[in-house]
Amino acid sequence: MRMLLKIIKDFPWFLWSGWGSIASILLFLALWDVGNHIYGDLVLPAPKAVFSEIYRLFSTPEFLVDLELTVERGLLGFAVSLAIGTILGLVGGRFITASVMSRPIVTILVGIPPIAWIVLAMIWFGFGDMTVMFTVVVASFPIVFVGALQGSRTIEGELSDMMDSFHLSFWQKTRDLYFPHLFSYLFPSWVSALGMSWKIVIMAELLSSNDGIGASLAVARSQLETSTALALVSVMIGVLLFVEYIVLEPIKKEVESWRD
């Protein structure tokens, strides 16, 4: 609760400190406009055209349905990989054999490009929800798994000894030692897995689904509606930026204030 209050209190300051980023965004828009003048509307529509397209998109119900569907798939896939990755990682870290054995598997999982998973998933599950979510899960699971594995492997015997020397209860040890330690590994891995889920869900939809933002992007491409495509891309980036900087960054700052 105290933490929540602090996050809210620090929020205006946090926004104020964003002027630098705003300046760089404006510069980017200016360059974009120059590009439009050079290459024309078909290749690179003007920022203004794209923004009015974004506005139009948000007032069409079909788009909102698609957006919701994509967010839903992304979050569901993320939640599944978060749950499985966290549990398996924490348990795996407690057993040396399990951690050693999981290493090559994780390396392989990380190494397989998501596009390969999409192809396989299309063969296994056909077109639609299952393929999209499967791809999201396999792509973001290893990130969470590795974070949890490292967290549980690095619980310090020395701090644990210290807690034991004061005869503290298991409950207090969990609350004051295990949980903060594990969380400091888990939280960053959850954040990167969330970002990964969002990118993968759109790519998977683009290739293997009839609905969702990714599919709309595929349609826009085939009909050469460049401004719609750019508007969709902007929305994707917007969602990512919103979640990363407005939602997660303040939380991260607060829960990690004890770090160097």
């Binding site: 020395e158 210290m162 004051d176 903060p180 004890w258 770090r259």
Partner: peptide, 8 residues
């Protein structure tokens, strides 16, 4: 070594 909890 002092063994303080770094998050406290």
């Amino acid at each position: 070594d002092a063994r303080l909890l770094p998050w406290k």
